[in-house]
Design a protein around this nucleic acid. Sequence first.
DNA 1: CTTCAGAATTTGTCAGACATTTGAAAATGA
DNA 2: TCATTTTCAAATGTCTGACAAATTCTGAAG
Lengths: 241, 241
Amino acid sequence: MSRAAIRYLEPIEAPSRGVAVLDALAEMIERAGLQVGDRLPPEVSIAAALGVGRSTIREALNRWEGLGIIRRRRGDGTYLTAKVQTSQGPLPTMIQLEGEAILRLLDMRRVIESGTVRRAAQNATLAQRQQISRLCDALLQIVDTGQPYRAADMAFHSAICDATGNPMFGQVLAKMDDALERSAESPFSVPGFGLASFPPHRDLANAIVAGDPDAAEAAINTILDSVESEIRQIIAPAQTR
Amino acid sequence: MSRAAIRYLEPIEAPSRGVAVLDALAEMIERAGLQVGDRLPPEVSIAAALGVGRSTIREALNRWEGLGIIRRRRGDGTYLTAKVQTSQGPLPTMIQLEGEAILRLLDMRRVIESGTVRRAAQNATLAQRQQISRLCDALLQIVDTGQPYRAADMAFHSAICDATGNPMFGQVLAKMDDALERSAESPFSVPGFGLASFPPHRDLANAIVAGDPDAAEAAINTILDSVESEIRQIIAPAQTR
DNA sequence: CTTCAGAATTTGTCAGACATTTGAAAATGA
DNA sequence: TCATTTTCAAATGTCTGACAAATTCTGAAG
């Protein structure tokens, strides 16, 4: 029964209830041991337990729904669709949740990027392969000299997307890039972010030029592995365990 | 003046106002030419122009705020902090698809679906595997008896998405489904569409239950192959190239 | 021209009400 | 007894109205 979970809620008094509500909810979910698929207490109960209006609860839950953390079904209830890890520390739970959303986005990106490089390795024209190799050289040189690499990186990956023959890959990856950059704790704002991921770029370019889809997929996975580990370090610095 | 922008809003009547409001807002922002940093019209004006309550507007804006698209300042207004990607997901709303665009979307879908079933085969819990197997049985029986299979098919794939542990896969695939259905030449409006793709569904369910990612990917590719060939037959006559 | 008080505007929150949908218990029928 | 239909309680979706709080604009006083 989801009813039992509401006893883990205490009235809140902090200013800016919006974020406070999310913190209280995250704590409740953890302490009540709610799992993915479980139903949350109804909005009216949550509102009553926290001593706030239902509108406030709904506004908070809307944000979570946008992030894919919960799913609501009219006439039924609200269900948990993703794991909520508060990490039990002094870290603001809200930040933590956004971090999990970033990791999910990156996982999504890994899938699309795998398909992209495979198709690029198979479908690229000779001119496109030369262009990719050239842009990779330019990118690595810029990184070596310590200059801002963002533009060159995007040009490199953009060329790969063009080589797939399906412009949708480029559009979708650009959207996901935007979403990452605009995130609350954008990894791109961290100085030196992503440097470890550049050496494998040479492997990726070589694999595409050689027309080897498996090697290209392996290379992009290596790149994304290092990016993911860097992001994990950013969003979970207190996980000393 | 942000006031001028509200004339691009027209009353909406679709069911489920929440998403309709976001679409209307995105269209307004585009048509009014609002840039990053510009102020949106006040909530009351938007609500009045759309003919909905302010609560509905606020719920929609809250999702955007959670995604970092807008920033709100109490007593001041709401400002655009990022280029609007219509609707909330990482995928753009591909409003009108026709001809080759459908095939490109299907190729995109093949990539995402491959990643989805692989993750489902690896991460699904025992209960989720049983649920998937059960839903597959129900789906095949419905198809055999000639009943409308759309709902059962969506339930089956939805269960697979849930099993990935990453709700974004479900969101993205649902959005692609919507795009296909809304398409000018929607394959779903063709009677008997997709029937050939159902026998391999059993293989897909078995592979996920057995936890075999490679077999699951092979099965989903077989399914999508038959769907693609059917779509080609539908759209090919119109393109007597 | 500068400064400051107050009005106007805008978002944040609350309360109550009704609509719509869902799920399950209860009633009905064979 | 079992299957089907009806009814009803519960939950989310939406609207209205109101007030609080913060910001910006306005205008008068110095």
